[in-house]
Amino acid sequence: MRIESNLKWHILLILALFISLMPIVFAVSTSFKELSEAYSNVLGIIPDKPTLSNYLRIFQELPLNKITFNTLVVAATVTIFKVITSVMAAYAFVYFDFKGKNLLYFILISTIFIPFTMTMIPNYLIISQIGLRNNIMGVILPQLSDATGIFLIRQAMRSIPMPLIEAARLEAAGNFQIMANIVLPLVKPAVISTGIMFFINSWNEYVWPVLILKDTTNYTLPLALQLFVSSEGGTDFCLAMAVSVVTMIIPLGLYLIFQKYIINTFTSSGVKG
């Protein structure tokens, strides 16, 4: 009886998974098909005549090396800065008492809920004014800190038993030593997964770069991808899928490597203040 009802649920779950993961499988498969086969053998997962021509073409038609490099620079810089600023701020919020602490934390965290449209025009003006439009620096600059990061890392730090910190303080360890020797090693999983998420999100970022970047050579991958889509219906899906695969391979790889960390961090993040 119990097994039977579980089986029912499993079938349902597998079906849901199928729906959510199949598009990815189709994308990979189509990217290795010739255009004619893409339309004649739509459901075939393994191409009849596998080809790399789509990949060769996209690297010919676009400065894709440069674009990938741009994406990497943006994602890496944003990630490093977000992690550092988040760890610093979280440390202050957890291990110090100071005037206005709770209010400040509340204000910082509430920025998570501000719609992007409330800030995009003035930010565009700021970036234009300092001459960083059409420059990946302009993409990076407004993203050097992140309230979600402060939130997640603070949660992780709060789960370290206070006596550990007190024991270190009794040993006359200073803030820097406590941070480096005790706190950081213990919140490492949270820092890694938050960092990976920063990297992936920045890698995938579209809305802000599309406002800032104008020239193809300055593009990031998601912007390049859009070049292959034509709203008039003339999209070459084989090329589009090849760029899609190039775009998602890094995030997917990172996710598969750090999956346990990431899932645990978001599962335990909870909302307990």
């Binding site: 038993p161 006596p163 024991a167 270190a168 006359a172 213990l186």
Partner: peptide
């Protein structure tokens, strides 16, 4: 020196490192 109720041992350090951490700091 203090011995805490739940011992407050650093979970990421070995026994030896736990014991001498304070000495290293100093």
């Amino acid at each position: 020196s203090m011995v805490f109720q739940n011992y407050a041992l650093y979970p990421h350090m070995t026994v030896a490192d736990n014991i001498i951490y304070g000495l290293k700091v100093q």
